[in-house]
Design a protein around this nucleic acid. Structure first.
Lengths: 121, 121
DNA sequence: CCGGATCCTATGCGATACTG
DNA sequence: CAGTATCGCATAGGATCCGG
């Protein structure tokens, strides 16, 4: 007897599906990967990623915090200082996410070539 | 001298960024993972995934085909038969994607717990 | 059976300006 | 510095029906 609930993304209502789909949010992987090298402040994060607006970065970070992947540290000083860092749970996701990044960078040229070929016809 | 262009998702205009973000489309991972076990017909794909409308599944498959990740095989018969299968490029993406799936299923409970805790406050 | 054609809506995302 | 407040849009995604 196994009382541990099993999760399966191929079951439409399984929470794991929604979670996996969340991880594909436009900015989530970039935020996670940027935090891989250590804690960063809000503005640092912005600069590293580039082209992300504060509003969207905030909402992405909130979601990550809510999901337990990122920790938010507020230091009360003037001006205020806020640092974001990966939790242990977040760290455990790093390797899979980095694999996606590596694949994307490694095969980008092939994908682009495939697109050109496809668009010709 | 290295004439090979390097890709970096942290560079805003690098094609690899857009490609990585594409891979996070709502249905892309599910389609890829469902095709992992072999070629499937359109309707089979639909049934396996469940809750995906034909229009969206079609557009997802078209994008995957355009990106060179999925191959579309049409058999002219009545009624028509269309099979989809992963290309070699698609196969190479399977392992990273499956790692994401495994993580999602393995840590779903923790994420859900984190959400509950977060929402309490 | 496959999936295109339409129509529609929810919302992710962006731009800008402003505040504790 | 670290966001929040508005506003607005593009578009991914969904529901339905129809056609080859």
């Amino acid at each position: 007897m196994d009382s541990t609930p099993t999760f399966n993304v191929l079951v439409p209502d399984c929470p794991s599906r929604e979670i996996m789909q969340r991880l594909g949010d436009k900015w989530t992987p970039l935020v996670m990967l940027t935090l891989a090298s250590g804690p960063l402040r809000f503005s640092e994060l912005r600069q590293h990623i580039g082209s992300v607006t504060p509003k969207v970065l905030t909402s992405t970070l909130r979601t990550l915090e809510r999901d337990g992947l990122v920790d938010r540290q507020v230091t009360a000083q003037v001006p205020i200082r806020v640092d974001y860092e990966l939790t242990n749970l977040g760290l455990s996701l790093l390797e899979p996410m980095d694999a996606i990044r590596i694949w994307s960078e490694k095969h980008a040229a092939k994908v682009m070539a495939a697109r050109e070929l496809f668009d010709e016809n």
